[in-house]
């Protein structure tokens, strides 16, 4: 019974991926992609990884889907302006060898991986045992949170830096003259929906963050839900992205600032970088996580809202069209 379910799920996942790749219509690919995220969340459940299922449900099926829809809408909106612009055109008919070579390399990749999975040696080191052993000293009960914010917290610190860099690049890309989004009037239905839906989203986000210390959940999942709530608000026409620039910057960086400050200030007591004093480890981790949740939510939202509006000003286009 178990196996039948898993096999069906795996095949559905592969079909879904194939659907994403071979949809001629871009929008169909996007919907397939959203479905793919959902199926992947189910796969994580079957792999005993509810944390990943949470993250995938919030990010894969939620945020990334919205980003993609937004991008496709952008393409079609712009397409109306560009007469004869190449939309979803993959170029001239390819040569025979350029058909065979990709098939060949994909098959090779699959066979190599198959072998690597099949003839894998038994690992001589068992990290899960070590994690279980050190869990009492980590300050949290949930092993994944312990790995993310204590044992391998340096990775997490750098990862927040990665997110922050992405936002900085997004800011740098933003045109200097940002124009108000066209047609952003408040829709009464959306308005009502958001009034009912956003508060529970925020509550669930905070709950997931809080749950992270003893069961699946934590800063990333909470942050992703927070970001989704913010995206929802923006879609519903609330102009929350028009926060003061400096305020937004501080909010984006707050999690990183707190993390870095805690990581460094423990060194005053002679401890190595990122060593939480054992007596307050749990509290410190929760504090950092709370700040991270806030910042991650803001960062992910910001990556969404920095995108140019679907109907972009076409002033810069004139020269381009003359060129062609």
């Amino acid at each position: 019974m178990n196996l039948a379910f898993d096999v069906l799920l795996g095949i559905a996942l592969l079909l879904c991926a194939a659907g994403v790749f071979y949809s001629r219509d871009l929008f169909r690919a996007v919907v397939m992609f959203i479905a793919f995220g959902l199926l992947l969340a189910l796969v994580w459940v079957r792999l005993d990884a509810p944390d990943l299922a949470l993250a995938e449900a919030a990010i894969g099926a939620g945020l990334t889907g919205v980003l993609m829809i937004d991008a496709v809408a952008h393409l079609s909106a712009k397409n109306a302006h560009h007469q004869g612009a190449q939309f979803d055109q993959t170029g001239a008919r390819p040569q025979l060898w350029s058909r065979i070579l990709p098939v060949f390399s994909a098959v090779i990749i699959f066979i190599l991986l198959l072998g690597a999975i099949w003839w894998r040696p038994d690992a001589p080191v068992s990290l899960p045992d070590l994690v279980a052993e050190s869990l009492p000293e980590s300050g949290v009960e949930h092993p994944i949170t312990a790995v993310l914010l204590n044992f391998r917290s340096y990775d997490t610190l750098l990862e927040i830096a990665v997110l922050l860099v992405a936002v900085v690049v997004a800011m740098a890309l933003k045109p200097d003259t940002s124009e108000p989004e066209a047609g952003n009037s408040k829709d009464p239905i959306l308005h009502g929906l958001s009034a009912r839906l956003v508060p529970p989203m925020l509550v669930v986000g905070v709950y997931i963050l809080w749950a992270g210390s003893y069961m699946p959940g934590g800063a990333f999942q909470g942050g992703a839900i927070l970001a989704a709530a913010l995206v929802f608000l923006k879609l519903a026409g609330f102009g929350i992205e028009r926060l003061a620039d400096s305020l937004l910057r501080i909010g984006l960086a707050l999690g990183f600032i707190v993390f870095l400050t805690v990581a460094t200030s423990v060194m005053i007591g002679g401890r190595p970088f990122l060593t939480y004093p054992e007596s307050v480890a749990g509290e410190l981790i929760f504090f950092i996580e709370a700040m991270l949740t806030f910042s991650i939510g803001l960062i992910l939202f910001s990556l969404f809202s920095q995108a140019p509006p679907p109907v972009a000003p076409t002033s810069s286009l004139q020269g381009e069209q003359d060129e062609r």
Binding site: D48, A49, D51, L52, A55, E56, I59, G60, L63, T64, L67, M68, D70, A71, A123, S126, L127, P128, V131, P143, I144, A146, V147, L148, R152, D155, T156, E159, V162, L163, A166, V169, A170, L173, F220, A224, I296, I299, L300, L303, F304, Q306, A307
Partner: peptide, 27 residues
């Protein structure tokens, strides 16, 4: 082996990096 929290944590990091890469590439 038993459920291993380490790769799960790594993948969680990976998912977040992947979503920011996606967002950046889209932008």
């Amino acid at each position: 082996r038993q459920t291993d929290p380490v790769p799960q944590a790594l993948v969680l990091t990976g998912i977040v990096v992947a979503v920011s890469a996606t967002a950046l590439a889209l932008l």
